[in-house]
Amino acid sequence: MKITGEKLMKAFEHSVVEYVEHEFIASFLQMSGFRVVFDVALKPGSRVLSVEIRNSQNLYEKLNLQKVYNVVTSEWLMKNGDGFTMFKDCEAKYLQIPILDALTNHIKKSKVLNPSPVHEGRITVHNVFPLKKGVPPLHDNN
């Protein structure tokens, strides 16, 4: 879809509007090609501190609110899934292929798959609530 940086920013804000004690409630946006910094101590609607987007040279640049970007997303999100209403008026080209098939085809074509985990720094969260004593984190990497 074609989407402005302003609408992308709204999507990231919506993504963390319901952050409660170490948990993003339902609508946390799963993404690739972005670096986003949130501060959950700030009031909802102003929690996104910065957004960078990876460009065609594989370098990150600051999100430009006036620029129009091409991004790939699911039809479900395009149709207001999880309350992402900012996508509804975006120009979209629907692929006639399921997402899993598109991913499989991409892997076969590129012939490169690195199964080693890589920390890309996609998501940084500031002012996370302290864990209650004896309560394990919700996002355990085991």
Rank of each mutant, 00 (worst) to 15 (best):
R47K: 15
P44V: 07
F38C: 06
F28T: 11
V72H: 04
L8A: 03
Y19I: 06
L77D: 06
Q66E: 14
M9R: 15
E18R: 14
L77I: 08
H14E: 08
E61S: 07
K10H: 04
G81Y: 02
F34C: 07
M78W: 00
F34T: 13
S46P: 11
V40H: 04
L42M: 09
F24Y: 04
D39A: 05
N55G: 04
V37W: 00
K43H: 11
V48N: 07
N58W: 06
L49Y: 00
K7L: 12
Q30N: 11
A26F: 02
V40D: 06
S50W: 00
H22Y: 02
S32E: 14
A11C: 13
S32N: 12
S27C: 06
K67I: 07
D39L: 08
N58R: 15
M78N: 11
V17T: 13
V37A: 10
L42D: 14
S27I: 01
V16L: 01
R54L: 03
A41E: 15
V71F: 01
Q30M: 04
S27K: 15
I25C: 02
K79M: 05
S27H: 14
K10C: 02
Y19V: 09
S32D: 15
S56K: 15
E21A: 03
I53A: 02
S15R: 12
V71D: 07
